[in-house]
Design a protein around this nucleic acid. Structure first.
Lengths: 186, 186
DNA sequence: ACCTGAACACCGTTCAAGT
DNA sequence: ACCTGAACACCGTTCAAGT
């Protein structure tokens, strides 16, 4: 039995695949219509415009990010173990163009809010760990912000051809930088 | 005396302004033609295609970046003073959307090489300072890579609405993280 | 209710024709 | 040598018309 109609889900599924492969810019109505064997007119029955589809894609991304953070938090262990697990996950993450592209595309595509919420959640989780490890709340927040920025920046460098994530000594270095005691400045 | 013709320089100037304001995506032939009071046909006399204009824009950006690094290096002082100056410059840099957008757009726009060269030069400069400050070359390179990534990532977070660079304690924190002695891991 | 097909706008690209 | 203006392709968007 062949599917009779193209559902809203079909559009989001196809758009999400395109997003994972090539970022939000790849979420385009006409090419997706070709992939789905539908017309653009069909798309505009299910969605108000392209922005609505982009919104649905980012909503799905946000939900999966939230699940991932919760899974990390529930994995348990000591704060130090959870920090190790977090850095391990980051080290394994590597080349996912979608995420590397997302932050700069977010504002232009009108989904900056969702990306900001996800970022905040990540910073909060890491800051919680650092507080458990004995840092003060302000210092913990700053270090977490810097750590997230580092991960995002390394993905960008990777994306531009600097094989930053290949260096096996880099993640330990970053870990040390996040954990280290603050220096008194000269 | 009114200028008779639209020169190649005029196109690059207009394109560079658009780039500084809104990133490479804003380098578009037809809107620039409107701004310059010329036709698209005129553009295609001076340039092979839009990619050539984007290339010229990034070339100018690369040249100015190089000048900036050289100026920093020639400023002199002790390595610690130069490091302070570098972080001060970064702290003052703040909201330049163009740079924040550039890294993710670079690959798609075919100018990844120029961006990679600029990144490499920045890392090399900082790593040199860290070596002068007593770090080993590998550790210095890793810390420099992480530091550049941090700056790029903070720009992205800023761009998405997390007021990361507003926190006055953040740059000292980042400085401490770059300078700190490596930890032995647990 | 859901879709097609044609239309229009926007921008990249080409090119014959003008000066 | 340099430019105009019209044409085409691509994709977002609208809509009358079909089932």
């Amino acid at each position: 039995m062949v599917k009779a109609t193209t559902t809203q889900q079909d559009w989001v599924d196809a758009a999400y695949s395109a997003f994972l492969a090539d970022g939000l810019a790849a979420v385009r109505v006409e090419p997706l219509a070709r992939v789905l064997g539908a017309t653009k007119g069909s798309f505009y029955w299910h969605f108000a415009d392209r922005a609505a589809l982009v919104g649905a894609v980012v909503e799905r991304w946000e939900a999966q990010e939230t699940d991932a953070v919760i899974a990390l938090a529930e994995a348990g262990g000591t704060p130090a173990q959870r920090l190790e697990a977090l850095f391990g996950a980051v080290a394994r993450m590597r080349r996912t163009p979608a995420t590397a592209l997302l932050y700069t595309q977010a504002a232009a595509e009108g989904v900056g809010d969702a990306v900001r919420r996800v970022s905040q959640r990540r910073v909060d989780y890491l800051a919680g760990l650092l507080v458990e490890l004995g840092h003060g709340p302000d210092e913990a927040r700053r270090r977490s912000l810097v750590a997230l920025a580092t991960v995002l920046g390394l993905q960008q460098l990777e994306h531009v051809g600097l094989d930053a994530l290949d260096d096996p000594g880099l993640v330990p270095t970053a870990l040390a930088m996040v954990l280290a005691e603050p220096l008194s400045r000269p």
